[in-house]
């Protein structure tokens, strides 16, 4: 009772239970007078009392761990040396400082017990063939996964298996999208169904899309819809072309549609690139407009802005956008980095 009064809360209990060393302490030791003049009944009574008293007075207490209160704190650093659960998380490679932003997460993490609450999840992820480092990253990103019921997680994995995802695919999905397992089977089914219906995908295409970009599946449906609208209606690509772009560059559908439109407008109106060429290389649309403008202006100045594959001195859009500045200046523009840097300072 004494201990509970000091440390209320689960965290404190685990703290005590884990490092228990017995120290005998006798408190309130009194000299009990033994009087021979008292009658027998009284003697018996006092004997009993003495026995009771002695039992009450001798405590086996652990004073090592009796400490000042754990004061309210802004970070885990003040707790970690005393808390076994935090130490276990530290061993798992979790970045504990990232939890501090959210108070609810911090409280939740402290209320856990490694043996009862966390160990089964570690085993579960081990069975999924997920490496130690990624496990730490998954918990860092989504600590609430530990709140889920382990049977539910097995069901969610089984759902993927029954949808013909191979174990390697499942490992990749869980690794690159830590929030995947927090969604219920119904939600995931509805999300996959949305993509299949919205873009008229085949089963294999849905699977390859899921594996190449697992984050897209659980992304906000609204953003995907708005992006599809922008690409289909505002830019004027056909449904088939939109589908092709989705499979080639799924990240395009996770971006802000205003930025994509800006890039598209520059590509189509300033650089005179046809829609067919953009369909072949949808990666260009994910490029920032500023970067594209800088590079295009540089090529224009050198009179190398030739994007027609049928004519000589052709510059492919993907190499224009994806290569780093040094490679772009020497290989695409056939100039030097110094000249390109000077050019960047002049616009």
């Amino acid at each position: 009772m004494f201990r509970k009064a000091i440390y209320s809360g689960n965290f404190a209990k685990t703290l005590i239970n884990n490092s228990f060393s017995n120290v005998a302490v006798i408190t309130n030791k009194e000299v009990i007078p033994t009087n021979s003049n008292v009658d027998k009944s009284k003697e018996i009574n006092s004997d009993l009392e003495l026995k009771e008293k002695l039992e009450f007075e001798i405590h086996i207490e652990d004073l090592n761990e009796i400490d000042t209160y754990l004061k309210p704190t802004f970070n885990f650093a003040s707790y970690i040396n005393k808390s076994p659960i935090l130490q276990e998380f530290f061993k798992l490679g979790v970045d504990l400082y990232k939890f501090e932003k959210n108070q609810d997460v911090a409280k939740f993490i402290l209320s856990l017990n490694y043996e009862n609450d966390v160990h089964k999840f570690v085993e579960f992820f081990n069975d999924l063939n997920i490496s130690h480092e990624s496990l730490g990253k998954i918990i860092t990103k989504n600590p609430y996964i530990l709140k889920e019921n382990i049977e539910d997680l097995v069901v969610r994995i089984n759902y993927l298996k029954c949808k013909k995802f191979t174990p390697e695919m499942i490992t990749r999905i869980v690794e690159s999208n830590p929030f995947w397992l927090s969604y219920t089977t119904q939600q995931i089914d509805q999300m996959l169904g949305f993509f299949q219906k919205h873009f008229t995908l085949k089963g294999d295409e849905v699977r390859s899309l899921t594996v190449t970009c697992p984050k897209l599946i659980t992304f906000k449906e609204r953003t995907v819809k708005v992006n599809t609208f922008a690409i289909h209606e505002e830019m004027g690509f056909s449904t088939e072309e939109v589908k092709g772009m989705l499979l080639k560059k799924p990240k395009l559908f996770m971006r802000d549609q205003r930025n994509v439109l800006k890039t598209f407008e520059y590509l189509h109106n300033e650089m005179n690139i046809s829609l067919d060429q953009i369909v072949d290389e949808p990666g260009v649309l994910t490029c920032r407009c500023n970067r594209l403008r800088e590079r295009h202006k540089f090529l224009k100045k050198l009179e190398r802005d030739q994007f027609d594959p049928k004519k000589p001195m052709y510059v492919s859009l993907t190499t224009l956008v994806s290569s780093p500045d040094a490679d772009f200046a020497t290989e695409v523009a056939k100039s030097s980095v110094q000249i390109y840097n000077e050019f960047l300072k002049s616009i």
Binding site: N75, A77, N81, D95, Y97
Partner: peptide, 11 residues
């Protein structure tokens, strides 16, 4: 080693 001073804990 003082874990409270580790970059993974204090940032």
């Amino acid at each position: 080693p003082n874990l409270a001073d580790h970059p993974a804990v204090v940032g």
